[in-house]
Design a binder for these strands. Sequence first.
DNA 1: AAAATATATTGACATTTTTCTATATGTTGC
DNA 2: GCAACATATAGAAAAATGTCAATATATTTT
Lengths: 102, 102
Amino acid sequence: MDEKRIAEIFKAFCDENRIRIIKLLRSGEKCACKLLEEINVTQPTLSHHMKILCDAEIVVGRKEGKWTHYSISEKGVKQAKECLRHLTTLDVESTNESCREK
Amino acid sequence: MDEKRIAEIFKAFCDENRIRIIKLLRSGEKCACKLLEEINVTQPTLSHHMKILCDAEIVVGRKEGKWTHYSISEKGVKQAKECLRHLTTLDVESTNESCREK
DNA sequence: AAAATATATTGACATTTTTCTATATGTTGC
DNA sequence: GCAACATATAGAAAAATGTCAATATATTTT
């Protein structure tokens, strides 16, 4: 996966308000109006954060009439975990020259 | 863990150059001069990114004379994984009111 | 069809982040 | 001690991000 996409995924987790939103979704699907009650931002700001979370595919929105219900995306989370695992696992295959000197 | 610290950890993964650096460290410990050769930024910019990676505890620096050797921190990675797991795991204990309406 | 409600988009502003140049600090070898 | 090298810090500029007020869009209700 390219660096740009990886960055996009993890941007979900690097803003305090988005982390609060994710924590709220741990208890299950919630509509935007409910999230808005529990978080200290205006409605357009919440909408902006939900877009970032959805673009990262950590969250999915389900439209139902005038409401949008958001929930944690199992699929996206799996991808994020796999991505984190891959990034941080030593690659034993690759040779290594640790320093120009020595 | 508080939102601020969680955001700090995942900031390691939300910049393209930092992801490139982490990918380079997958092949093992590397000194700053070696990383600098392989990445298209100036030395102070690299230093800045290394600080963010170290603050997130995803990377550790080992000083040896005039060199600093960087490597992926198993301990920090473990914490990040655990953090991601916790954030994205449904909390079955908590009751849920998904929407104000209905 | 008009009013009310839920969410998204636009545009402006403030803050944060990334980047650079210049300079400082610390280490090694002469 | 001095020159050369590796890395860090300071400060400034540019870019990206977070935030809000205003407004648009879509849906439901009356």
